[in-house]
């Protein structure tokens, strides 16, 4: 309990890391819900990796241009990384979504190729980048240790924006996800709402990757919605359960990691996996003992 008291203290040295982690935990599942419902889970694996490649490319640009960034503050580094992340993510999501909508070829193959090439490219870029030693590799691995007030504010604003857009247009985003034909006959601009869905996913993934890295981002995009889906009866329950599971798990994960001196991101993902496994077992047990309805 002493550790918990420390973490909750306003003077806690890593408080920005806790806040960022919890923000990502709450926000990622909100867009992850749409990835799961649209059966785009493989896109959820590929996008964070492509996003981190965008970070690696952006951070390599100064080196390629012969600029010395060692004297620059972390804000400009963060903005540069964010620009690379968002540009790569949005480009990838639009191309992959377009190909997926055309329904030709092998979507899983395309996503798998995108994932593995992006991962390899990140490693190649960073192996030739002397600035990697300045902490950028930590950024790509998602070490949530040094989060500045600027980074936290940027994350909070971005995720609040996502929350507002999702809240305002949930009806339209759900309609085009569930029944595009109905949406078109109701004269909804299906392409616009599709694009907005992908924009939200891309934006959230970019923010999450910058804060917690690709592996943990994928964990928060996928596992909370899958867990919530076991119990939710309505879309509202599904969305709220997923977000709460993500937020609570990220806080508990931080607590456990701090208590036992473990890396925060991987602890979060393992904890989410345990929560999912337990929820699955509870659900199956409940179904087993539920009285059968009369025929």
């Amino acid at each position: 309990m002493e550790t918990l008291r420390q973490i909750l203290s306003p003077d806690f040295l890593l408080r920005n890391s806790v806040y960022t982690s919890v923000l990502i935990g709450f926000a990622c599942p909100l867009v992850g819900v749409f990835l799961v419902l649209r059966r785009l889970i493989f896109m959820g694996v590929a996008l964070p990796q492509i996003s981190s490649t965008g970070v690696a490319v952006a951070l390599s640009l100064p080196l390629w241009l012969g600029l010395d960034l060692s004297g620059h503050d972390s804000q400009s580094t963060h903005m540069l990384a964010f620009a690379g992340s968002i540009v790569f993510t949005l480009m990838a999501i639009l191309v992959l979504a377009f190909l997926e909508r055309r329904g030709r070829g092998l979507p899983e193959g395309r996503l798998g190729t995108a994932y593995v090439v992006a991962a390899a490219l990140s490693i190649l870029l960073l192996s030739k980048n002397r600035y990697a030693e300045l902490g950028w590799l930590d950024l790509l691995k998602g070490e949530i240790i040094t989060v500045s007030n600027f980074d936290l504010t940027l994350t909070a604003i971005a995720l609040a924006l996502v929350l507002v857009v999702l809240g305002l247009f949930h009806k339209e985003l759900m309609l085009v996800s569930f029944d595009r034909t109905l949406a078109a006959t109701l004269r909804k601009n299906v392409v616009f709402w599709d694009a907005l869905t992908y924009l939200l996913i891309g934006f959230t993934v970019s923010m999450a990757v910058l804060s917690v890295g690709p592996l943990i981002s994928f964990g928060f995009l996928l596992i909370p919605p899958l867990t919530a889906h076991l119990f939710a009866r309505t879309m509202r329950q599904f969305t709220i359960f997923a977000s709460v599971i993500g937020g609570v798990a990220s806080f508990l994960g931080f607590w456990i990691a701090y208590q036992w001196d473990l890396p925060v991101g991987p602890t979060d993902v393992v904890l989410l996996g345990i929560i999912y496994a337990l929820s699955f077992a509870v659900k199956k047990t409940t179904l087993l003992f539920r009285p059968k309805s009369p025929v």
């Binding site: 799961v36 419902l37 569930f178 029944d179 889906h229 939710a232 009866r233 309505t234 879309m235």
Partner: peptide
């Protein structure tokens, strides 16, 4: 059959 059963909708 065109409507995905994955959506938790009443």
């Amino acid at each position: 059959v065109e409507l995905d059963s994955l959506f938790p909708l009443t």
